[in-house]
Amino acid sequence: MASYNLSHLKQLEAESIHIMREVAAEFDNPVMMYSIGKDSSVMLDLAAKAFAPGKIPFPLLHVDTQWKFQDMYRFREKVAQRYDVDLKVWINPEGKDVVGPFSHGSEKHTQIMKTDALKQALDHYGFDAAFGGARRDEEKSRAKERVYSFRNKFHQWDPKNQRPELWNLYNAKVDKGESIRVFPLSNWTELDIWLYLMRGDVPIVPLYFAAERPVVERDGVLIMLDDDRFPLLEGEVPMKKKVRFRTLGCYPLTGAVESEAETIEEIVQEMLLTTTSERQGRVIDSDGAGSMEEKKKDGYF
């Protein structure tokens, strides 16, 4: 007799698909935030499964800061074709071709080109639900976030006033102008993501794998010179190092790690044997304890 047991990964998949179908059924105008990262890749692949043999019934939205890695832009176009999905790209018109991390600093750049841009895009298209690929294990303040995370008209999150969430019954009721951020990967961990990707067939940006890349070391962080907008400081000499990225964002704000890992197995091996957590590479989190929480209250994903 069959045992009728599902592995943890199959259970997570089923849960994510359930959440996506709920959103597609209950909201008027949902969208999937697409960051081009590995979690986004998994989320998108699950969406394709959820609605097969049909098409994904909502568009993808990429909030483009204009400072992503070139590899990411190439990958984005390939993926939109592969999944036959409507990809929308939004660049904050107020900051377009003006604001950047070098001219305005990382904090202002992120605020204008990422947080503000996201809010603009959601308002512009009138999306009432937006999927995000965040996981609860990523960061402490995320541990308490709901799968359906309510945002007011100003896209703000109120951690003290969250809707209770029981069983797999999600409350999709919002008034006009309000929205829900939906996190279908809430219960996945970093290892789960890699285990899913390891089964093959789901493409991820090549930057996750180690290769010789031009980098400089700044404040102890290895930054890749991805285009000619990178102003070298006096005495700074680019060097070739075999590096990979654990997370992807704006290239001047994303630290690389030296690595030999060229396959997913090797990445996982390296990840398990290293002793620092994933977000360490992101400059944005180290502003202070609770910094992510502050950003999220303000509408950051």
């Binding site: 402490k140 303040s141 304890a289 929480e293």
Partner: peptide, 8 residues
Amino acid sequence: TDGLKAER
């Protein structure tokens, strides 16, 4: 394990 700032 204590996540949010206020609680901490």
